[in-house]
């Protein structure tokens, strides 16, 4: 579904992504992991069409990405909720912008809020929410536009372990039920292994891909309680360390 060919991205003169090639299949998930500052967010913004590649190509369903592709959902590192809108208005924003009918917006937003178990929060403002609740709202907002491609930037990094696992389970469920292709940026190894069908390890510098690992155990909700899980986590950890030593 997503094909990245010889991608180079720059901010001004500084190269942040240096020649990346990557294929992500339809209805699969991909976790991108790497140290801070290696260009994970930049790559994701490129796939979202928000930042333009310097050279190379990003194709989605064989078309070059353009800004505001209708079916790409993006969830940002700091949630990106608008502080002056209530939860309901934040979640409905995508549909409002697309010019949907009031009735359809009402129906869709209420449905998604109920599904994510946050309907009771609909009249609150983002500042009145906990971190985990904000995260759920951001997910709800991305889901209202029924995306076929969902991009998430370190979605759960600021949450406690329990909320994080709950939300990881939720994302797994959403992925399975809606046939959404998922690309997730993280610097948490356990998260990458739990949510990544393929795990892409980026290098310390220069925004290069060091390794791509297939994760045969992906999709098992009970994975965290199995020893295979730790085996893969260990494998990823060692690959990342090897990179560091070099």
């Amino acid at each position: 579904m997503v094909k990245i060919k010889n991608l180079i991205m720059k901010y001004g003169n500084s190269t942040v992504i240096k020649n990346i090639n990557l294929n992500i299949n339809k209805n699969s998930t991909c976790a991108i992991i790497g140290p801070s500052g290696c260009g994970k967010s930049t790559l994701l913004y490129g796939i979202a069409g928000i930042l333009k590649p310097f050279s190379g190509e990003i194709l989605i369903n064989n078309f070059p990405v353009k800004e505001n592709r209708k079916k790409t959902g993006l969830i940002l590192q700091n949630y990106g909720l608008l502080p002056w809108k209530t939860v309901w208005n934040n979640v409905s924003l995508g549909l409002t912008i697309r010019g949907y009918h009031k009735k359809d917006i009402q129906y869709n937003v209420d449905k998604v809020l109920r599904e994510l178990d946050v309907y009771d929060l609909k009249d609150r403002y983002p500042i009145e929410l906990s971190g985990g609740q904000r995260q759920r709202i951001a997910i709800a907002r991305a889901l209202t536009i029924s995306p076929d491609l969902l991009l998430m930037d370190e979605p759960f990094s600021s949450l406690d372990a329990i909320s994080r696992e709950n939300l990881q389970n939720l994302i797994l469920k959403i992925h399975k039920e809606n046939n959404i292709t998922l690309i997730l940026v993280t610097h948490n190894i356990e998260e990458a292994v739990f949510l990544g069908q393929t795990i892409v390890i980026m290098g310390q510098k220069f925004g290069e891909i060091k390794n791509i690992i297939n994760n045969p155990y992906f999709g098992d909700e009970e994975l965290r309680y199995k020893s295979d899980y730790y085996k893969i986590c260990m494998e990823v950890r060692q690959l990342m360390r090897k990179d560091e030593i070099k």
Partner: peptide, 27 residues
């Protein structure tokens, strides 16, 4: 205004006028 807010509203498909209406003016 943080860059992320611009990114987030652009990712929802907002055009220039909608960015003013939902992001810049209220801020």
């Amino acid at each position: 205004l943080s860059k992320e807010l611009f990114y987030s509203i652009k990712s929802l498909g907002a055009n220039k006028i909608q960015i003013y209406r939902h992001l810049i003016i209220p801020a």
